[in-house]
Design a protein around this nucleic acid. Sequence first.
DNA 1: TTTTTTTATATGTCTGCACATATTAATGAG
DNA 2: CTCATTAATATGTGCAGACATATAAAAAAA
Lengths: 237, 237
Amino acid sequence: MTAQALNNWQAVQEEVVRRIHGGVWNQGDLIPNEADLAKEFGCARATVNRALQSLADSGLLDRRRKAGTRVAMFPVRKATLEIPLIRKEIGDKGHTYGYTQISRRRVALPSPVALKMALPRGTKVLHLLCVHTADSKPYVIEERWINPDAVPAVDSVDFSQISPNEWLLKNVPYSAGDIAFSAMSADKPVAALLECKTGEGLFVIDRSTRRDTQAITSVRLIFSPGYRMSTTLSFPA
Amino acid sequence: MTAQALNNWQAVQEEVVRRIHGGVWNQGDLIPNEADLAKEFGCARATVNRALQSLADSGLLDRRRKAGTRVAMFPVRKATLEIPLIRKEIGDKGHTYGYTQISRRRVALPSPVALKMALPRGTKVLHLLCVHTADSKPYVIEERWINPDAVPAVDSVDFSQISPNEWLLKNVPYSAGDIAFSAMSADKPVAALLECKTGEGLFVIDRSTRRDTQAITSVRLIFSPGYRMSTTLSFPA
DNA sequence: TTTTTTTATATGTCTGCACATATTAATGAG
DNA sequence: CTCATTAATATGTGCAGACATATAAAAAAA
């Protein structure tokens, strides 16, 4: 039987992956150009383009104009993490969400945070410390710094009613930033807030966001022991 | 002056983002359909489609056939992490890479790992314990389980010369899987391997990979204190 | 009323063509 | 032989038009 035309981009993608799996094209190999593949598969070049572009996005192929498309030497695995609203994350797990503001102060920005926010050390910022709970048990500590120059409205917000996490997402929703994942050991004050033993290993997320180049906020989330953040490493079929 | 035609998809994307930023379209709002936007922007519908599809991918828009396109209620932030080869990660940081195999045994799969690999508890697998070093200092512990049914060749590989991390990536390169990030507290044996204090908070990555539905391998990476995994949270312009 | 069927509509994607752009390879000047 | 210039080429992206597909809403049947 003759080959059936691969006339949709997912089928083309699958065939390309099959050839790589099967060793027809090996790591580092140059594969035929789009026009030739289109002719072979019996579809338009745009269809091949879509398939290959998507494979390049997922790290399986390297493409460069004129140089052509080759199978990546080290296929970089990419994991996409969805960073949810804390209240939503807890609700989705079937727990009852709760929230407490621990403290709210105006402070001079300490050096390490100043660095992350790219603001002069000592800039006056709003500092908030809060705890989010799931079924009344501490879930995560939110330690937040907000640049009031970027968000003047914060001064009139009552963060004992709504968490900075949620208020900022609603009111300063579209921003870019950095995020880092790490671990720390629970010291006394943290252990007290999370109601765990000192010395427990805790999962930490540090995030800084900005609008254009203006720093908006920086936050450290310290999760209760046992927290896991998981996702899938999916490769195109 | 009249509006200049937005005749490339990035410009269209920027304009859409601008309108959301600017409050022209609010969270939850239905935006005009592709045909109308194309007419307004002076470009083809395909161009609008490309722009909107990409914004939907990044979580800013929700799209459904017939229902149309609306601004996401809670813009889900997505962070894409690139999971590099350990040797490459250490090299890229300017350190000298080193590697030691601590132990290699055939064992019956313990329950928690069996669960992650979706194999019967007690299945005979290859268990490896190794340490990767940067400038001779422990960088990460690799504790690995390999299903020999999926990768028969492992029996003849000398993992004192090449790490399972690297050998598997080269020899079983394209697979899907799960990945999870968490934290643990260094117990005695771990602290000894990483040359750190017991009780230190350590960053942990658990990963299981499979080909189709067949479990290939599961690994736990336990990083030295201070390790951070970072990336950017980027929103389209 | 409630359930099923039909219809209208917005997105999804393919085709064939054209031109833009990056970058390698060939060519020519010094 | 070396460096600058030019040509060739693979990918990147645009356009108009067509049909596919999911699905919300309207119409018809129970």
